[in-house]
Amino acid sequence: MTDTQWQVFEVFHQPVRGEPHVHVGSVHAPDAETAILMAKEQFARRQACVNIWVVRADAITATTYEDADIFEHGTDKSYREAFGYETTKRAKAVGDSAEL
């Protein structure tokens, strides 16, 4: 019984210019052109949208959730954050009270 199972395209939409594209779901489609036509009505028939991307799902390489710990910080990384410094106070001490 099973016939053509179309491939999956992941759909990303941009609500307004200047905002990033956000993943909103996926459609089955035979090709990218049809995927765009289908995605437009399935995912942008209500919400504001100015642009849609479709990407073949099998073109996406992802990390695994098992490896989520690679994103954790084992040691203090505040040296690479602005909040990790007391430079405003120190600048004032050397006579600079203007904004950094």
């Binding site: 019984m1 099973t2 053509t4 089955h28």
Partner: peptide
């Protein structure tokens, strides 16, 4: 229906199979 079949597909069953 489209959204839900797709959600079920992520668990390893195709939409065609489910509709059949």
């Amino acid at each position: 229906g489209q959204l839900l079949y797709r959600a079920a597909e992520t668990l390893g069953k195709s939409r065609e199979e489910m509709i059949d």
